[in-house]
């Protein structure tokens, strides 16, 4: 590679030859709103959830009536949980009425094309042998499938969370999940599993943030900014290029 003149000059020049990109409105407002509401709610849930499991030594007073911080921590957890559940419900709805990047089908590798892309993305992200090239404009198939697994964890946390909450609430919603408690062998066991999956989110957030930065670099078409503004960029291949038509279809 070092014989290639471009390699030598790579940091000296401003870049390569001009190529055309097309703006694609990928993430509609409800999708972006869902993402950020979810991000905030999940952060609150993880932090307060961890604190509920491991209360800090915050005692600025000696008597119970003078402070209520643990009560507030729990309140924030429960309030954020409701926001998160209804927000997730909204996203499920949007999976049926949203654009093609938001539709529920993208989350399941049902087509051959999606399955092949999973291999491609593993080559790009994990093995780092295919460092550029075509990746779907919306969610790539691997990311989408992992989001699907995440949705399953969302459901699990919702069910176990409400099951735990039902003991201290008269609201009908948590009581729908009361049956989980005997099924899982008592509230202590439910609490354990609910707490364990907190770490799934910690792991997910680390990988998710890193990979969005990584794909921003690898794909070079505004992955990170797309979740703020909604736009991504699709390569328009030059005239005479064989893949132009196919590419054009993909980005409509």
């Amino acid at each position: 590679m070092s014989t290639n003149p471009v390699v030598r000059d790579v940091f000296k020049t401003n870049g390569s030859a001009p190529v055309e990109y097309r703006r694609v409105y990928v993430w509609e407002l409800p999708v972006r709103a869902y993402h950020w509401i979810n991000a905030i709610a999940l952060t609150l849930l993880c932090v307060t959830g961890y604190l509920i499991g491991h209360p800090l030594r915050i005692s600025y007073s000696q008597e119970a009536y003078q402070q209520y911080w643990f009560g507030w921590t729990r309140f924030i957890h429960f309030a954020a949980a409701y926001v998160y559940v209804f927000n997730f419900g909204m996203r499920i709805y949007w999976g049926f009425v949203g654009n093609k990047y938001a539709v529920w089908k993208t989350f399941l590798p049902l087509t051959r094309k999606q399955q092949e892309e999973i291999v491609d993305v593993i080559k790009t992200d994990v093995l780092q042998v295919k460092m550029h090239g075509e990746i779907s404009t919306g969610h790539n198939s691997l990311a989408a499938f992992i989001y699907f697994l995440t949705f399953l964890v969302f459901c699990f946390q919702t069910i176990t969370g409400f099951a735990l909450y039902s003991g201290m609430s008269d609201a009908w919603l948590p009581h729908l999940f009361r049956w989980v408690v005997p099924l899982m062998g008592g509230e202590f066991a439910v609490r354990f599993w609910h707490h364990l999956f907190l770490w799934f989110f910690v792991m997910f957030v680390i990988v998710h943030i890193y990979l969005s930065f990584y794909h921003d670099y690898i794909e070079g078409r505004g992955t990170v900014s797309s979740i703020i503004g909604g736009w991504k960029f699709d390569r328009v291949k030059g005239a005479g290029n064989q893949g132009a038509k196919e590419q054009g279809d993909k980005t409509v």
Partner: peptide, 18 residues
Amino acid sequence: IRKRSVIAEVHAEDEKES
């Protein structure tokens, strides 16, 4: 570590296409 060669490849590709 691999940044140089990746960017070079991308540039080469762009060059070819334009």
